[in-house]
Amino acid sequence: MKRCAFLSMASLEKFVCYDALLHAPLKRYGWHAETVDWRDNSIDWNQFDAVIIRSCWDYQNNPAQFLAVLATIENSRANLANSLEVVRWNLSKIYLRDLEAKGIPIVPTEWFHGLDVAALPPLFTHWQTPEIIIKPVISACADDTFRLTPTALTQQAKTLATLFQERDCMVQPFIPVIVTEGEYSLFFFGDEYSHTILKTPKSGDFRVQEEHGGQLQSVEPEAILLELSRAALAAIPEPTLYARVDWVRTDNGFALMELELIEPSLYFNMDAASAERFARVFAAGYFRGSKALRFVSAHT
């Protein structure tokens, strides 16, 4: 039986994770899966046939170390999914600029290399919005994400200046429909569409993650969401084993929130066939290209 590692963090005690639902279907395809801590320097990656990046929900605290570990894995005999090239491209949310340049609609965004707080008040008028969102370009789990009115911006100016003094960050208008309707997530394994969920925040919050009280429901995506998602996937540097595409409805149509290719929750609990779908795509070699060919030829 071939060995597969799920790259995770030391403790998932404060998180909701559904990757264990993959164990049984992977076993049916001849794979034994186990969860390992990405920060464990004692691991010999050559003992694995494949390593799948999964619940590394603390990588944003040390992205350089994270990339170094992935480089070690990619240089071992193990096949890394998604690839190091994809991760490097997707690590910073600046990738959204690449997608926008290719015609993918995104939420209007201003980018800062070291935050100039004085540049923020005019954005309320520029976007005709009563609230803005500010967050690091390298982030996960809504860490260091602020929803601000002009008054709150004044009150937290010193905190923001200190927090983002030497960090790249992004500022967007707050999209109220995130609270009233929610955020749509579409899941793809290889080039195969899997399922869609709608995530809505708890009352009084704007964060849709379950860890923050967000609620989930399975939905059928509108045709335009599938079309836009496939266009976004086509812009990725390499084909991927998995992708999650997050959208929000705006007055001008759907806008991309994020294209998650590193450690998105894939919500196998929300679609009974999704774990089997993932396992089948993975066992088949998971994508075309040199890495996939090496994977298939070495392990079939």
Rank of each mutant, 00 (worst) to 15 (best):
P176C: 02
P201Q: 07
T154A: 15
M170I: 12
L198P: 05
Q172K: 09
D143L: 03
D144S: 08
Y184W: 15
V171R: 07
E181M: 04
L160A: 08
C141V: 05
A152Q: 15
A142S: 15
T151I: 11
V177P: 04
T145S: 13
K199E: 02
T162P: 00
S185H: 04
I132K: 04
Q155D: 14
Q172D: 02
R167C: 02
S139R: 01
Y193T: 07
T149A: 12
T125Q: 15
V137Q: 06
Y184L: 06
L186P: 05
T154R: 13
Q155E: 14
L198F: 12
T159V: 13
T200Y: 01
E192D: 07
H195F: 08
G204W: 05
V177I: 13
Q156D: 10
S194P: 10
S203H: 13
T162C: 10
A157W: 08
D144Q: 08
V177M: 15
I138D: 05
T125L: 14
I197P: 04
L160S: 07
T196V: 00
H126G: 00
P122H: 04
D205L: 03
F189I: 09
V171T: 06
T149W: 12
K202Q: 14
L123R: 10
H195E: 10
I138H: 05
L153H: 10
K158C: 03
L163M: 10
T162H: 13
Q156W: 06
F188N: 12
T196G: 02
I133D: 05
S203A: 15
T159H: 14
K135I: 01
T180P: 07
K202A: 13
Y184T: 10
C141I: 01
C141L: 10
F187Y: 14
L123M: 09
R167I: 01
I178L: 14
I134E: 03
V177Y: 15
T151L: 10
L186T: 09
K135L: 00
Y193I: 08
A140G: 11
T149R: 11
F188H: 12
D205S: 11
K199N: 01
R147N: 06
S203T: 13
E192A: 12
A142W: 04
F206K: 11
Q165H: 01
P122G: 02
C169E: 05
F146H: 15
P130W: 08
V179M: 06
P173W: 09
L153R: 13
K135G: 04
Q172M: 12
T125P: 00
L198C: 13
I133W: 00
P150T: 13
F124R: 08
C141R: 08
T129G: 07
P201D: 06
